[in-house]
Write a protein that binds this DNA or RNA. Sequence first.
RNA 1: GGCGGAGUGGCUCAGUGGUUAGAGCGAACGGCUCAUAAUCGUUAGGUCGUGGGUUCGACUCCCACCUCCGCUACCA
Length: 665
Amino acid sequence: MSDKPSKTVYITTPIYYVNGSPHIGSALTTLCCDVLARYQRMRGHEVWFLTGTDEQATKCFEAAAEAGKEPLQFVTDLAAEFRAAWDGMDFAYDDFIRTTEPRHVSVVQEVFRRLRDSGDIYKGTYEGWYCVSDETFFRDTDVKPDGLCPNAECRKPLRRVQEENWFFRLSAYGDRLLEQIEANPGWLQPEFRKNEVIAFIKQGLRDASVTRGNNGWGIPVPDEPDKVVYVWFDALINYLAATGWPTDMERYEQLWPADAHLMAKEIFVRFHATMWPAMLMALGLPLPKQVYAHGWWVGATGQKEGKRTGGLPHPLALADELAGLTGAEKSVAVDAVRYLLIREMVFHGDSEYSHEGFLKRYNTDLANDIGNLCNRTVTMASRYFEGAAPTPAGVDEEVRAFAAQAAADYAAALDEYRFNGALEAAWRLVARMNRYIEEKTPWALAKRGERGELATVLYTCLEAVRVVACLVAPVMPTASAALFRQIGMEGASATWDDARGWGLLPAAAALPAPAPLFPRIQEAPAAAAQPAAVKPAAQPKEKPVTEAPAPAPAPEGPATITYDDFAKVELRVARVLAAERIPKADKLLKLTVDLGTEQRTILAGIAEMYEPEEVAGKQVVIVANLAPRKMRGIESQGMILAADTEGQAILLQPETEVPAGARVR
RNA sequence: GGCGGAGUGGCUCAGUGGUUAGAGCGAACGGCUCAUAAUCGUUAGGUCGUGGGUUCGACUCCCACCUCCGCUACCA
């Protein structure tokens, strides 16, 4: 993952919004980062695994008020809850950054200052609608007459606001972003989401408002304390702030650029693949090496009419349930959940969560396959060789090669974020060994007194279990340690050389009394009650992703054009003969206009401002030589000129009546 | 509306031109007995969304259509 062995491998999750308890969605990202971090450490790399919480949002402030708590206390309590959940899931993060910490606040302000000085952040005026809940601006054209938030999941009343804001010149970075994407094929992943980013950028980026009015919460804008930094602009900077930039440059050099940003798909396109790299470009800093968006867990569809019955369990609740059903140690049950989440997931896409499927796979993969393999191996070795690992009479080359191949496949899969592929590779070895035992029938060898062969076979089995213990270590650290203990290697650490090696189990190692590592679920899985869901919509309840609109008057207009350029545009006066609404189109009117020499059909996005009967009879200015374009199945043969104020269209008309078709210049 | 993804045995999925389309789970049958009623083997089961086309040959390429999903969009 890292091309420079000397550089620390820096892996991040997004920082999570502290508006509720952690759920399976944020747990998934964090789990995958944890697995990668543990794997990279196993490969001998220095690793820095960062996660944290996003606490500067206005929503947090308001949620605190509702809860009757001081805002800082409120977010501190929730941050502690996240840490407790992650600790409970055995996530070994190296740093947990909170955006209310001084080390974050100061860097955000420094970034703001630098970009303001460089002109990448400029002042503009915004007038329009604002949703406090979503912390998002909306243009008039985005808002329906009901005055409610356009976000279907919000629908709260909007506020009319007019304020001076600072804008980030995102629009200036589209081309450079596209160049970066093209020059670095593996940068944005997976591929199909990269294509979404390209489409998003190509349609044109708008400058983004990066400040809000200060209502007592948020990071104050330098020198302008009546404003705070917009929460998204603030949040992304955490990745940089955690490195110590710009004060601890030694540490920064060791960590930056990040090797991998992982996040769920909804915050990929606009933020991690667009805004964040643009911000870094503006700062003149290197970009993260890889940005990967994974999918979501979606609710089970098994029930009637395929309806999404939302409600995914909290991962720790799932672990509690497994511990209850099996009698396993809590830490082992946590490992089981870690395994099941990783194994059942199609990382790049959405995965269907099936509670029954999880429990079933617990029995098949963990209890039956790996747990029983270990148990039967240790039981036989212990029984036939007086409680110690046998000394082999030779090496089973076929199994040794098979194990090496499994390790290679495992590594290849993890390098491509195919987590389930890595586990499949490990399980191929498990299945091979269960077959191996049937083929070799050690019990028969014991009966016949073939001690040499018996020793080799059982040592081979123990070795294979050792390799499996190494391979599962990143996913199931506790279970890995338990496997080592069972084969007489208590306290052994799993390095990658151990995973690839063979014959590393010390001969005559004392074997403890065998005990099932993953006790089976006896109860029929279908009858097991599903643990309480965290909340109805258990998907990551993320911040809205609507960007702020560009300011009304852009300080710098578009580049100048020559007169010849202008002369290409054929503007003419036309009279509207008829106007009608188009079914299912909120904004479009279909106009029939008279150009003197001909009549044309033109579609115009003015339905929200003008009734059809208002428009009919008016003289308007049209672009007569614009390429036709179909909308709503109707071809528009020109374009009506209108003034754009507050997103509303006001038609332009000649001062006095002129002949239809008159040229405008 | 545009762009993109998906539609393969009961379930979850793999499979980007070439013998009888694969895996896991589930099912049936059989073996074994070291083991957590575990394990191993065998078998059943798919007109690969629909209809055309290209090709000696298509799940795999092309066209149209249907269904589901994602991104984006009604202001030309």
